[in-house]
Amino acid sequence: MIEQYIPIFLVIGVSVVFSMAVIASSKLFGPQRPDSEKLSTYESGMKPVGGVRERISIKYYLVAMLFIVFDIEVIFVYPWGVEFKKLLGEQGISALVPMIIFLVVLELGYLYVYKKGGLKWD
C-alpha cells in the first residue's frame, strides 16, 4: 500500500527542506561585503577567458546516447534478474537464451561504436 512509500517521502521532504534552509540561512546570517573581485567569475584563480556560450562538441552527445542505451539495458536486465530463479525452475537453462540474445545485440552496437572510434577522446 501507499504507506510503504512514507520513508521515500520523508527523504524527499528532508532533502528539500534541508537544502532550502542551508541556502536561506547563509543568505540571512552570513556577512556580505561584495567587491568586484569577489563577484567576478571564478576560474581556478585565473582571469576568466572567453564566453560561456561556447559550442560544445557533439562527442558529448554520443556519450549521453551511450549512457541512455545502456541505462535502458540495465532496466530490462533487472526484472529478468529478480524473476530468474523462477524461470530457471520452469524452463531450465533455456531461460538464459532470450537475455543472452538481447545482450549480444546490444554488445554488437557497442562494438560498432568502438570500431568507429566513438569512444576515442581526440
Partner: peptide
C-alpha cells in the same frame, strides 16, 4: 536500442 546506438555513432 542497437539502431539508436548506430544512429548516434
Amino acid at each position: 536500442l542497437l539502431i539508436a546506438l548506430i544512429g548516434a555513432a
